[in-house]
């Protein structure tokens, strides 16, 4: 991985949520939703965050878009094509640290470069706006072009995401569209200001099977066309395999394994990844999967002990794991990182 092509850099990112804070009293317990997570996303890359519900993948996505502020850590973006007169804080290598972004204008500029596609297309479109108003909202907010130009761009984008002829969609309301069409509108809206980075949070999990493949293929072709990077958040390993170049597996706020998709799926090294992969049902009744039993269920990461987060459920845990801190991510194979002492 060359540093030259990196678009997003995440270093030791952490976000804690207080549990049951009292009136005028400081919280004493915290959910470690995202706990010291580091990774980089290349330009034009689809980077998958995979894990079960509550593992912190959505929180990570929101932190990257500044919808949430991190408790600790650093997120930096390579922002290009920014206006000359806008002074942005920059690191030595030209990256803009998101955590140091100050001022309304700087934040608004950042919003031109990063967009989001949400899970539920029924909730992510304002029911009181027409499709035209929805997809051109980023242009209006960013004051790009006059209304007629915006409408032209909106129509163009609708065609691009497979809603044509655009005139028959522009003035409709979301409730008049099907789930797949809505998700296409959501994609058009995210794409319209030509962002370089998109966080896609389970964009196909609410859609019907026959619609799903179309949306995934659309996102892939948009990546080819515009060289966009995605942070693709999903719980579905099969979807992650289809979409992503690299994936990171998260467990209780930690990345436990990170590597090229095929390497992680075909040759998982972390015991949690192994269990996760063996649990995926296979659409073929002839395949009998081996049963990999994990103890217990996913606990909530409230004030976790410093040792390996997976210790209590791990089938291969040793005394070494018990007395040492959570293992660091190490490169066990080429570009394939694992956080496990025993792997």
């Amino acid at each position: 991985m060359t540093a030259k092509n990196v678009l997003v850099r995440v270093e030791r990112l952490a976000r804690l949520f207080p549990v049951a804070r009292g009136w005028l009293r400081r919280a004493r317990h915290f959910v470690h939703a995202v706990d010291e997570v580091s990774f980089q996303i290349q330009q034009g890359e689809i980077f998958g965050l995979v894990g079960e519900s509550g593992c912190g993948k959505t929180t990570t996505g929101k932190l990257l878009l500044k919808l949430l502020e991190p408790t600790r850590g650093r997120i930096s973006f390579r922002l290009e094509r920014t206006p000359q007169d806008l002074p942005l804080p920059r690191d030595a290598d030209g990256f803009v640290p998101l955590t140091h972004l100050r001022g309304r204008r700087a934040l608004k500029e950042f919003r031109r470069h990063a967009q989001m596609i949400f899970q539920d297309p029924y909730e992510s479109l304002n029911p009181r706006m027409t499709v035209l108003e929805i997809i051109t909202e980023p242009l209006r907010v960013q004051k790009i072009g006059d209304p007629l130009e915006q409408e032209g761009q909106g129509a163009e984008m609708l065609k691009r995401v497979g809603l044509s002829p655009p005139e028959s969609f522009l003035f409709r309301y979301p409730h008049e569209l099907s789930g797949g069409q809505r998700q296409r509108v959501a994609i058009a809206r995210a794409m319209i200001i030509n962002p370089s980075f998109i966080v896609a949070d389970e964009p196909t999990s609410m859609l019907d099977v026959s619609i799903r493949a179309g949306i995934m293929n659309l996102m892939l072709s948009l990546r080819e066309e515009f060289n966009i990077s995605y942070l693709y958040i999903t719980h579905d390993l099969a979807v992650a395999r289809y979409m992503c170049d690299r994936i990171a597996v998260m467990y209780l706020g930690k990345i436990v394994e990170l590597g090229p998709t095929e390497a992680v799926i075909q040759n998982p090294l972390h015991p949690y990844t192994k269990a996760l992969i063996s649990a995926v049902p296979v659409p073929d009744p002839r395949v009998k999967r081996p049963s990999l039993e994990l103890k217990g269920g996913v606990p909530r990461p409230i004030d976790p002990e410093p040792r390996c987060r997976f210790y209590n459920r791990c089938p291969i845990a040793t005394d070494h794991c018990r007395i040492h801190n959570h293992p660091p991510l190490e490169e066990k194979e080429r570009a394939h990182w694992v956080a496990c002492y025993e792997a």
Partner: peptide, 22 residues
């Protein structure tokens, strides 16, 4: 708490824009 409010924020919408339009 609806995602379309977050979507408007991600687009760069100001507080007032979100209150008035969404």
């Amino acid at each position: 708490v609806k995602p379309f409010v977050e979507a408007a924020k991600v687009a760069g919408g100001s507080d007032w824009h979100i209150i008035a339009r969404h």
